[in-house]
């Protein structure tokens, strides 16, 4: 039974391949039908959020730990890329990799000590860390540009192809989002994924079977930070301007809400959550003040009534009904 794990995505491997193909086709075909520049911008933000949310979702779904510091990892990717390429003239692509490595190492030092402990220390450690990072972004104004932001970040390019408009960035960002989905689906179905599921089932049992639970948890956390860093770098090179406001506490709340709405532990749910809430944010943009109330309310309501998230929640509802009608038919 593949659906034994409560937080696991209720999809079989065959369906996963099908979804991946549909997803890839979607990326290629959407630009043929959509011409509005604004829609591309929204879809690009969805793509960036998807990358962050997929990583965070692995952490929340499999280790049962919460991070409120992903804004900081996202911001680190953006700022490291911006500073190294713009101020010091580093080549952009290797810098993205460098930013991912640095962010991953920092995440390890933040996460490992708190993941060793029982209980929810990680949520506060990451929150504390993200506040420190935010203070540094604002206060080290000679390096980061301070509260007024960091302008003039170059666009990414491959050879003569410069990713300077929304359409080109659409392809770029969604290619990376696709790769991240692929990586996390592979991870879920691999030896590491099985170890993580065992940890989720019972940490003690997993430990007795020789799974180094602390190490695996720390690895997932580092991976999720690396995804966030990648998204941050792409964001910096896409918008070409960054400011500390994009990487504050509320961004962390937003991505956490996306994970919850999509369903903890469901990779496709993460994509769904990122899409739904980013579009919702855009629609509600006129009343930015309401944003925190709405995110908070969605987070609370979904958790109180649909703790498995909307995708998984509705899917299991649908399955139950299907089973019920089957039983009724057999009864007749």
């Amino acid at each position: 039974m593949r659906n034994r794990f409560k937080f696991m995505a209720p999809f079989t491997q065959k369906k996963e391949t099908l979804f991946l193909i549909i997803f890839a086709l979607g990326i290629v075909l959407i630009p043929l039908f959509v011409k509005n520049k604004y829609y591309f911008m929204v879809m690009n933000i969805v793509g960036l959020n998807t990358i962050v949310v997929i990583g965070l979702n692995l952490l929340i779904g499999f280790t049962g730990q919460i991070s409120l510091g992903h804004a900081a990892f996202y911001g680190m990717g953006a700022y490291l890329s911006a500073i190294f390429t713009t101020t010091y003239g580093f080549p952009p692509w290797p810098t993205i990799a460098l930013a991912m490595i640095i962010t991953g190492m920092v995440a390890y030092f933040v996460g490992y000590p708190s993941l060793k402990l029982k209980g929810h220390y990680l949520v506060m450690a990451t929150l504390g860390f993200s506040i420190i990072v935010h203070i540094f972004m604002v206060e080290l104004d000679q390096i980061t540009g301070g509260p007024s932001g960091f302008p003039g970040i170059p666009h990414l390019s491959i050879g003569k192809l410069v990713f300077h408009d929304d359409l080109k960035n659409f392809y770029l960002i969604w290619t990376f989002a696709f790769l991240c989905i692929l990586v996390s689906l592979n991870l879920v179905n691999s030896r590491v994924g099985r170890a993580l599921k065992a940890i989720h089932g019972s940490e003690v049992a997993a430990n007795t079977l020789g799974i180094d639970t602390d190490k695996y948890k720390a690895k997932v956390f580092v991976l999720s930070a690396i995804f966030a860093s990648l998204a941050g770098s792409l964001y910096a090179h896409y918008i070409t301007f960054i400011s500390p406001r994009s990487f504050d506490f509320y961004y962390s709340i937003q991505v956490v809400t996306m994970v919850i709405v999509g369903g903890m532990g469901s990779v496709w749910g993460a994509f769904f959550g990122a899409g739904l809430l980013t579009v919702l944010s855009e629609i509600l943009h006129v009343t930015e003040k309401f944003n925190i109330i709405i995110y908070g309310a969605i987070l609370t309501l979904v958790l109180v009534f649909l703790p498995e998230g909307m995708v998984v929640g509705f899917y299991s509802f649908y399955r139950r009904r299907k089973v019920k009608t089957l039983i009724e038919k057999e009864g007749n």
Partner: peptide, 19 residues
């Protein structure tokens, strides 16, 4: 709350706090 898992309850307090 329908789930009494600690992680869900912590998330609920995060959501309430934002609201």
């Amino acid at each position: 709350a329908r789930s009494k898992a600690i992680i869900v309850l912590v998330f609920i307090t995060i959501g309430l706090s934002s609201t």
